[in-house]
Nucleic acid binder design. Structure first.
Lengths: 164, 164
DNA sequence: AATGAAAACCCCTAGCG
DNA sequence: CGCTAGGGGTTTTCATT
């Protein structure tokens, strides 16, 4: 749970470059950030080791996979003993892309992707069958403007109370 | 807007492998899916060309970047002439990771990530200053159970009305 | 923590079935 | 659409600073 102190501008440069194209050669990235290939390699290795880089991944167009339908589903638990079992069950469902526990009227927000609206019905049915789930509210996505953007900024360490 | 007909099991195997580690060598992937290196290379090239693969990317731990705070912000537009300008303005804001237009009480759902709660206030202030935005409702994320999971499944083409 | 060099490995194209 | 083959580039290691 450490902060970003350990990342300097060169690290951010490497992350930015690889975030846009993670198969770029280290030689290429090295010339961009002004380091040798070996140095970039070493920095990447360390960032993987320290968990800054979780994995090298792939952005796939969900439409071309046949996943035409997206919804955000808010989930409310009941007060029973099964509450802690809800998240693991949702994790097993491949249609649930993201799961966040949230403050407010609901306990979870799930981002769900299916082939079509009809398929969401099945997923909701499964979710409602999970012990501990009391009720769901779905918000249907009409159009995804953007998601999974490459890294373009990073937060500066918080300035120590300049304004009070 | 074509379907997934063109992707066979081998393509899915390649996507699954690269989704978990996009820097794996094609030679390595090839031995896994039972093809030659050149064949894997050619299939990847075509999937990039056809837009199935949008890009090779990187999953960075937001915590280690100092992004400790996540919220979903529902945005409602007013009925004015500026409605169509709202999405482009939100696109310019780096804290807005995702933007979906949705059906229901609100017009958009934005996924927003900042260093801390206080920084969300600034972002909301900016959003409310966009012409056309009428009102926002924020849902604070307490814990992200999972997000950006590697590909593990893909939808089978819909069975033609087996059940009616 | 970075460099340059060396060795192993991989990418990518070409030619062919 | 897939395979083999080969040159050229890249990754990865290591001694040095």
């Amino acid at each position: 749970m450490q902060a970003n102190i350990q990342l300097d501008d060169i690290d951010i440069g490497i992350l930015t470059a690889l975030s846009a194209d993670s198969r770029r050669s280290y030689a290429d990235v090295a010339s961009e950030v002004g380091l040798s290939t070996a140095a970039v390699h070493e920095r990447v290795r360390k960032m993987v080791e320290r968990g800054v880089i979780e994995r090298f991944s792939l952005r796939i167009d969900p439409q071309r996979l046949g996943l035409h339908f997206t919804a955000f589903v808010a989930i409310r638990n009941d007060g029973g003993i099964h509450c802690r079992d809800v998240a693991p069950r949702l994790r097993e469902m491949p249609e649930v892309l993201e799961l966040h526990s949230v403050a407010g009227e609901y306990d979870f927000i799930a981002k769900i992707r299916t082939t079509h609206a009809r398929a969401l019905e099945d997923v909701l049915y499964q979710i409602k069958a999970i012990p501990g789930v009391a009720r769901t509210t779905s918000t249907v996505v009409l159009n995804t403007e953007f998601e999974d953007r490459p890294l373009r900024w990073w937060p500066r360490p918080p300035t120590p109370c300049a304004g009070g």
